[in-house]
Design a protein around this nucleic acid. Structure first.
Lengths: 243, 243
DNA sequence: CGATCAATTGACTTAGCTCAAAGCATGTGG
DNA sequence: CCACATGCTTTGAGCTAAGTCAATTGATCG
C-alpha cells in the first residue's frame, strides 16, 4: 500500500473537477470532496487494496491499472506477489471509476501497470458528500450503469468465445481504450504482459502467445518488441471477435 | 413484447415504494415516479426488450427472469425464439434492478421464467425524477455498485473455473437467491432448465447434466423431477465451488 | 395413453492446458 | 560498449476437460 505523496495533489484533484461527473459540481460539494479525497501516485507494481471497513471509490486520472481479485491473501501472502490467485477482473484507464470492496466483502486490489495517478474516496464519505449534489450522484450512477454494460459484454466473451475471439476482442477494446481508435489501422503500446492478458481472458500465457502468432501470420497484427502492437484493420479484427 | 395490463397496477407500484431504494422516497418524487412507471405482468416466455431510443431501468417485484444478450435479432428473428444467440447474461429475482440498454447500444432483453411482475422506467425519465431525491439516487447507485461486485465474481467463475466449480457455485447462488439459504441443507425449485443454466455458465446442456449426475452420485445434491433440487450441505458445495 | 419435449448417457473429437525447452528483450556490471 | 543474466515470449509435444453427435430414458400434458 502506497503512502500519500505531498506533491501535485491540488493540480490532480483540480483536473478531476474538470472531468465528466464533476464538471457541474457545486462549490460547497467540491470543497467537501476535496477534504475527504486521497490523491495518490503509484509506480509500476504498487498496489491499492480495499480497506478493512468500507468500500473505496477510485477515480483513475492517469496511467493504467489492473483490478485483481484477491481470493485469500490473508496476511500470509504479501499482497501483490504474483502468487496463486491470478484473476484479473478488469483493466482500468483514465476516466474510469473503480469500486474496490472492503477486504471483508470479497476483496480486490488495484495494481499499477506503470505510473498511475488516482483519487480515492471512502465510498460512504463520498456518497454522503455527493448527496448534496444530485447531478454528481447521477453522473456516477450513469457511469456505473455503463460499467455494468461493459462487464456484460465481457462476460459473454468469457463464457462463450474461443481463444481467437477473445484475443481479437481484447485487441479491439484496447485500441478503443488506449489509442481511442475505433476503425482503420492503429498502433499503441500494451501496458500489460501476455500473462496479464491471459488472466483477464481466462486463457494461459501459451494460448495467448499462439493466438498472437496466428493473427500475426494472417497479417492482422504486427508487433514490435513486447508491447508495441500495430493493428492493420480494426474492423476485420472486430469481425473476428464475433458479435 | 407484452402490453400493459390494467389490473393491480397500483398495488404493485405501492409495494415497490415500501422496498429498499424507495422506502424514504419523498411524496413529490413518488408521485412523479408513479406517473412515468410502467407496471407489467409477464407470463413464462414473454419478453421485455430494450427500447429503440433510451435505456430502461427495470425493478423486479415478483417471479424470476433471464436477461438475454440479443446479438442480432434484426427483425428477422422473432425475438424470444430459441434461435442462435443463446447467451444468458444473468438471472434476475425480486428486488433486483436491471438496466436494459437501448437496442442501439448492444441490446438485451428480459425473458420471464414464469409469472413475472416488474416495474419499468425510461432511464432518463427516472433519473430526472430521482434527482429530486438524492437518497433515492444513492440507493440505486449503491445497488448498481453491488451488481458490479456480483458480476465480478461471476466473471471469475466464467473465466477460470471448471465445469464442476461453475455448477457448484451456481447452485450455491441459487440457494441464496431463491431459498434465502446460506448454510446447511435446503430445498428449492429451479425456475430455469438445464439449457439456460448451461448458457449462463458457458457450458453445454450435456455437461451441465453430467455435473448434476456427479454431484448426485456424491450425495451433495438430490433432484426430484426437473426442477426440484435438494442440497444436503451448502457449505460443502461452496467449498467445491472454490474461492 | 401416446405425443412431446427435457434430461441423461454414451462414444468420439478437439480446443486449450500442461510440461518442457528454446528464443528474444531489457537491464546490469565489468 | 559488450557480455551476461534474468525474465518475458514463443514454440513444441502430449493430455484432458469439455464439446459434438447420437441414441435412450424420463417427465408432463393434452
Amino acid at each position: 500500500m502506497a503512502t500519500i505523496p505531498d506533491t501535485a495533489e491540488r493540480s490532480t484533484l483540480a483536473s478531476l473537477f474538470g472531468e465528466e461527473p464533476f464538471s457541474h459540481c457545486s462549490r460547497a460539494v467540491a470543497d467537501r470532496l476535496e477534504a475527504i479525497a486521497t490523491v495518490l501516485t503509484l509506480s509500476a507494481g504498487e498496489t491499492l487494496a480495499g480497506k478493512g471497513d468500507g468500500d473505496r471509490l477510485v477515480f483513475i486520472t492517469r496511467g493504467s491499472a489492473k483490478l485483481v481479485s484477491c481470493t485469500a491473501p490473508h496476511g500470509s501472502t504479501p499482497i501483490g506477489s504474483e502468487g496463486e490467485n491470478r484473476h484479473i477482473l478488469a483493466f482500468q484507464f483514465p476516466g474510469d471509476i473503480v469500486s474496490i470492496p472492503s477486504q471483508r466483502a470479497g476483496g480486490a486490489y488495484l495494481v499499477a501497470l506503470g505510473e498511475l495517478d488516482l483519487v480515492a474516496f471512502d465510498a460512504r464519505e463520498f456518497l454522503d458528500a455527493a448527496e448534496g449534489d444530485p447531478a454528481l450522484l447521477r453522473g456516477v450512477l450513469v457511469r456505473s450503469l455503463d460499467t455494468i454494460q461493459r462487464n456484460r459484454k465481457r462476460m459473454m466473451r468469457l463464457g462463450h468465445r474461443s481463444a481467437r475471439q477473445r484475443i481479437a476482442g481484447f485487441l479491439v477494446t484496447m485500441a478503443e481504450r488506449i489509442a481511442g481508435c475505433t476503425e482503420g489501422p492503429c498502433e499503441f503500446a500494451l501496458p500489460m504482459g501476455r500473462g496479464d492478458i491471459g488472466d483477464s481472458l481466462g486463457l494461459t500465457i501459451e494460448t495467448v502467445s499462439r493466438q498472437f502468432t496466428e493473427l500475426r501470420n494472417e497479417g492482422l497484427v504486427t508487433t514490435k518488441g513486447r508491447a508495441l502492437v500495430h493493428l492493420s484493420d480494426i474492423d476485420r479484427l472486430r469481425h473476428e471477435a464475433g458479435p
